[in-house]
Design a binder for these strands. Structure first.
Length: 835
RNA sequence: GCGAGAGUGGUGGAAUUGGUAGACACGCUAGUCUUAGGAACUAGUGCCUUCGGCGUAAGGGUUCAAGUCCCUUCUCUCGCACCA
């Protein structure tokens, strides 16, 4: 059988869709609200490497869904764009001197070509890129809104600093504590930064998760990240007369507090340190500063700490307890100080054992000499709490503390404010100036966009500031408020900024007056389906939600949440081969000696097939361009969907691709046969209607793999016919069209149609034709399968039972046995229980 | 350690409310066609030694009936990492 001419067909239809703007979406008021769908893909960063096989997976899934929805009469918004600010282009610029804009735009062109070669039904008129002035104009505008709301503030925050490159590094540029480029030891350096008060929205971000149709794993990750805990703040008084506030989730254990710990960065460290301990404490704090975050948070290490020389008074019993300085207490959480209850907290217990501090049991139930007891039990040694359980104890203690004015109920979040500045060139400039007289002054909206100034020097400034600090003409400006001399802010925004709100700009991509027109936002929002990789489960999705909530609070958008339904596509992995010592062997260096058995070519030792991420070194990277060239976009799309459920990760097997390609060749083979208007057989009609039903249900549920296997079943039957039966073929072509759109359009033409099928009505099925006339009913004895009966569908229970009893395989089974029970499930089975 | 999810043939994966385990595809085996192609078509293909038995990570339980429900254990993937 000849290969079908996919290359010709695909080029032809891609041009047709482009020329005719087939997929342009408009805000047509005749569609009722429930017939409008906004289906969104996470937009890509246009890297120099081009499209990866992972990209088309999610994009194909949403494309199939969108094409299906259009045929079902929905008005569908399906846009695409680029997250085009970012580090790689800037690093490339430093190396080669090529402006990041040049690199980025060349990459975008390449990406667009690749994406179009897959035949996706995007409305390209709405394309956006975050680095264009028209776009970041409004990113800056939203930043001004955040600033106006008091949600942006300056603060000294640490960055990863490379003392050799004299520049700040992103986390991904730090490899094992060293600079990725020059291998120098990376330090932490405090610099002035802009920070967004996302913590103010912690509660809303947490609460509204419950309203979202998102994977439980993502919601759980976000809950975890926000990390809400409820407890109490308790104020201790120190010997120096200072108040030392601690946060605890277990105020009920206050009688068991035998010492306190403050973090080495705590503001009271100096004051609380006695003269005798001064040297020891200073040394300890210095050592702590040298440690990387990783070393400090390594759970396996022993606890370290040093006594400050000062005591505090426990407010419940006026006992004096020592204050220690230790790095197991984090300055960034709670108040940076804790009361230590070694009997009932594992960390405190370890610390107390290490430094031989007293352990007092205040809840019964464990053996606190052996380990910390963290479960519930009756209180002891606890004055007015004695006899109470954990929760009662907590409530009673909070009431007591409040009454005495030494504490109160408190809520804490792990979530920290969002460091929003980068010391980089290739990002949105912040629309702020620093005036000697007026301080920080925001630019008036009329001066937006604040354009990124041209330059040829992308080298870091050497001071930790962005390269913008070197551009004096741009830097020196006048204050919008007093007209006096002022300097522009040199920090730029992080890559997250542009991706925080891009879904809104698609709605009204060319609006020069507003970030989005209210009518457009009303028409489409919220996003009905958002598909992308799980790597954005926390940051991008949390930041977007935060911005959206701020925009909601200032009345700029109508919804509390931007993304109603979220799906993470699984990763496309690859096979690799593993030696007994766990080292991996590249794919092209093994031989399959028998099914499932592989040996390494060099040593001949047996190797095991394992699943690994695609990587150049394992020689298992698949380039989508090669696949499209050799098998066509429709095969590529179909295979990626046939591999397995969208949400799970699955290994690429080119042989599997061959299978779907073979299937499309068979489809083409049928399409080329003489068209006949004859009535198909009842059997074929049944297969067709079952196929319509299954493909409809599965496409609706995004279960594309099973929809495709049903279409294969259909073709396996129809293939046996001599002619192409129009009554079967027309509905089938419509069914396969969202999956293999080029082939679909071409076959539609072959059926004599003159219009694109993109807006043809989706086929309907006849339920009566979806049920079998005959059913195979199994007969079990004591749950074990003994015989099968072929009966008319809907045969009654009594008749099924009597048929089973008369069955020649069953009769001997019943001899000499007593029938205890008979279970009959019509159309399914008969189970006879005997003794 | 905590949180989330997953373990089904040689491989990717199917299995409404518990009701025929292995759909569909890959691979493999045999056959057909003067046939060299990533051919195509037809048939077979969970495992075991035949009657028959055994099979959904392992063990136990509920049930007439368990891949599916419950308990215990193990393994793997992802996320977080002393969060007081």
């Amino acid at each position: 059988m000849a290969k079908y001419p996919f290359s010709e067909i695909e080029t032809k239809w891609q041009k047709f869709w482009d020329d005719n703007k087939t997929f342009r979406a408009t805000e047509d008021p005749s569609f009722p609200v429930e017939k409008r769908k906004y289906v969104l893909d996470m937009f890509p960063y246009p890297s120099g490497a081009g499209l990866h096989v992972g990209h088309p997976e999610g994009y194909t899934a949403t494309d199939i869904y969108c094409r299906y929805l259009r045929m079902k009469g929905f008005n569908v918004l399906h846009p695409m764009g680029y997250d085009s600010f970012g580090l790689p282009a800037e690093n490339y610029a430093i190396k080669t001197g090529t402006h990041p804009k040049t690199t980025t735009e060349a990459n975008i062109e390449h990406f667009t070509k690749q994406i179009k070669s897959l035949g996706f039904s995007y409305d390209w008129d709405r394309e956006i890129c975050t680095h264009s002035e028209d776009y970041y104009h409004w990113t800056q505008w939203i930043f001004l809104k955040l600033y106006e709301q008091g949600l942006a503030y300056e603060s000294d925050k640490p960055i990863n600093w490379c003392p050799s490159c004299l520049t700040g590094l992103a986390n991904e540029e730090v490899k094992e504590g060293r600079c990725e480029r020059c291998d120098a030891q990376v330090e932490q350096k405090n610099i002035r930064q802009w920070v967004l008060k996302i913590t103010e929205y912690a509660e809303k971000l947490l609460e509204d998760l419950d309203t979202l149709d998102w994977p439980e794993s993502v919601k759980s990750m976000q809950r975890n990240w926000i990390g809400k805990s409820v407890g109490a703040d308790v104020v201790f008084t120190t010997e120096t007369g200072d108040e030392l506030k601690v946060y605890t989730t277990r105020p009920d254990t206050l009688f068991g507090a035998t010492y306190m710990v403050i973090s080495p960065e705590h503001p009271l460290v100096d004051k609380l340190t006695s003269a005798e301990q001064k040297k020891a404490v200073e040394d300890y704090c210095y050592q702590a500063k040298l440690k990387s975050d990783l070393e400090r948070t390594d759970l396996a290490k022993d606890k370290t700490g040093v006594f400050s020389g000062t005591c505090a008074v426990n407010p419940v019993n006026d006992k004096k307890i020592p204050i220690w300085v230790a790095d197991y207490v984090l300055i960034s959480y709670g108040t940076g100080a804790i009361m230590a209850v070694p009997a009932h907290d594992t960390r405190d217990w370890e610390f107390a054992k290490q430094f031989e501090l007293p352990i007092i049991e205040v809840l019964k139930g464990g053996d606190v000499d052996r380990e910390a007891f963290t479960e519930d039990g009756p209180h002891v040694n606890s004055g007015f709490l004695d006899g109470l359980g954990k929760q009662e104890g907590i409530d009673a203690m909070i009431a007591w503390l409040s009454e005495k004015g030494v504490g109160e109920k408190a809520v804490n979040y792990k979530l920290r404010d969002w460091i929003f500045s980068r010391q980089r060139y290739w990002g949105e400039p912040m629309p702020l100036v620093h005036c000697e007289k007026c301080g920080v002054v925001p630019l008036p909206e009329s001066e937006l966009p604040l354009v990124l100034p041209p330059t040829t020097s992308f080298e870091p400034s050497g001071t930790g500031e962005s390269p913008l600090a070197k551009l004096t003409d741009w830097l020196e400006t006048t204050c919008p408020s007093c007209g006096g001399p002022a300097k522009r802010e040199t920090n730029t925004m992080p890559q997250w900024a542009g991706s925080c709100w891009y879904y809104l700009r698609y709605l009204d991509a060319k609006n020069p007056r507003e970030f989005v027109g209210r009518d457009k936002e009303d028409y489409w929002m919220p996003v009905d389906l958002y598909v992308g990789g799980a790597e954005h489960a926390v940051l991008h999705l949390l930041y977007s939600r935060f911005w959206h909530k701020v925009l909601f609070d200032i009345g700029a958008v109508k919804d509390r949440e931007p993304f109603q339904r979220l799906i993470n596509q699984g990763m496309i992995t690859s096979f690799a081969y593993q030696r007994a010592n766990k080292s991996l062997v590249p794919t092209d260096e093994v031989t399959e000696v028998e099914p499932g058995k592989y040996t390494a070519n060099d040593t001949g030792e047996p190797v095991e097939q394992v699943i690994a991420k695609m990587s150049k070194s394992l020689k298992n990277v698949i380039n989508p361009d090669d696949i499209i060239r050799d098998f066509g976009a429709d095969s590529m799309r179909l295979y990626e969907m046939f591999m397995g459920p969208l949400q799970v990760s699955k290994p690429w097997q080119t042989n599997g691709l061959l299978g779907v390609n073979r299937f499309l060749n068979r489809v083409w083979d049928v399409a080329e046969r003489e068209i006949s208007d004859a009535e198909p057989s009842d059997e074929l009609k049944k297969v067709l209607h079952k196929t319509i039903k299954k493909v409809s249900a599965d496409t609706d549920a995004l279960e594309f793999n099973t929809a495709i296997s049903q279409m294969m079943i259909f073709i396996n039957e129809v293939y046996k016919e001599e002619k192409c039966l129009r009554r079967l073929w027309e509905p089938f072509v419509l069914l396969i069209a969202p999956y293999a759109p080029h082939l679909g359009e071409e076959m539609w033409r072959m059926l004599g149609k003159t219009e694109s099928l993109a807006y043809e009505a989706w086929p309907a099925w006849d339920e009566a034709l979806c049920v079998d006339d005959e059913k195979e009913v199994v007969v079990q004895i004591n749950g074990k399968l003994r015989s099968r009966l072929l009966v008319a569908a809907g045969t009654g229970k009594d008749e099924l039972l009597s048929l089973a009893m008369k069955d020649e395989k069953i009769i001997p089974q019943l001899e000499g046995k007593t029938i205890v029970e008979e279970i009959v499930v019509p159309d399914k089975l008969v189970n006879i229980v005997v003794r």
